[in-house]
Amino acid sequence: MRLVPAITLALLLTCGCERSAEPSLPSPLVIDVVGRDYLWTFTYPGADQILGTEDDLTVEKDLHLPSGHDVRLRLTSEDYIYTFRVSDLDLKEVAVPELQFDLVFRTENKGKYVLEVDPLCAVQFLHDDQMGWLVIEDHGDFERWLSDTRNQTHQ
């Protein structure tokens, strides 16, 4: 079990040398998830595969993830208490200002899932009944989405 990340890392390094333009996805794929004003924002690492650097990609509302891939969502909030919840995938974690909770998972279930609103984050009729979507797609589609979105954002 402990060996796997090391091997992955080794592979990544190797691949990184040869294909510096499009490195394959790190595992787990770490994404920062922030609740703010009844919306989720999602930050993906850039080519350097490190979060918190200039080439990060931040999107609102819709979270795209590759199927069959380990994912770590690092949840926090800038205002209210939110619950990141997808009932169909049995995913739930709380987002609290100044605290970070991680949601670690992997799913094969491709599809589009509603990110539900929780009563903890104040009055529902004052904002949408959902805080965004989770899109689980195969690697190819995910990478295409990532690269298209990155290109659009950086244009």
Partner: peptide
């Protein structure tokens, strides 16, 4: 009882859905 909108027909039930809605970290 604050977990979700509980319909009138479910008022006499325990809110067994709480651990499905809210994480253990909360």
């Amino acid at each position: 009882d604050m977990t979700k909108n509980i319909g009138p027909s479910k008022e006499k039930m325990k809110a067994t859905w709480v651990p499905e809605k809210w994480s253990e970290n909360f």
